[in-house]
Amino acid sequence: MNSIASTENQALSRTVLELDVNNHAGVMSHVVGLFSRRAYNVEGILVMPVGSGVTSRIWLLVNEDERLDQMVKQIEKLEDVLAVRRHGAEHEVFVRLEEFFR
């Protein structure tokens, strides 16, 4: 995992999802449940409240997979999910966190 080459290799096949969600107990369960029931591993999760704390933002790092389009559609159906945006693996949110995982 630590070698630059393997990180780059994986980065090619990863996607970052950015979700705006209502901030209350249970929202994370709804989101990650969609992945776990499909045996689709979430590689990274980052959540913080936004602004007044009424909403939160969830960042998910996932492997690219043929099921990803379906996953995004399923996430969009959740009542507590307000918006979903897809980013490439080059998005810096998880990259900047890497120093905490050494």
């Binding site: 107990a25 249970g26 369960s29 709804h30 449940g33 029931r37 959740l78 009542e79």
Partner: peptide
């Protein structure tokens, strides 16, 4: 009940 019903409801509330 909330946790049990997440995957089998369209939505749920506690």
């Amino acid at each position: 009940t909330y946790g049990l019903s997440i995957p089998i409801t369209k939505h749920n509330f506690l």
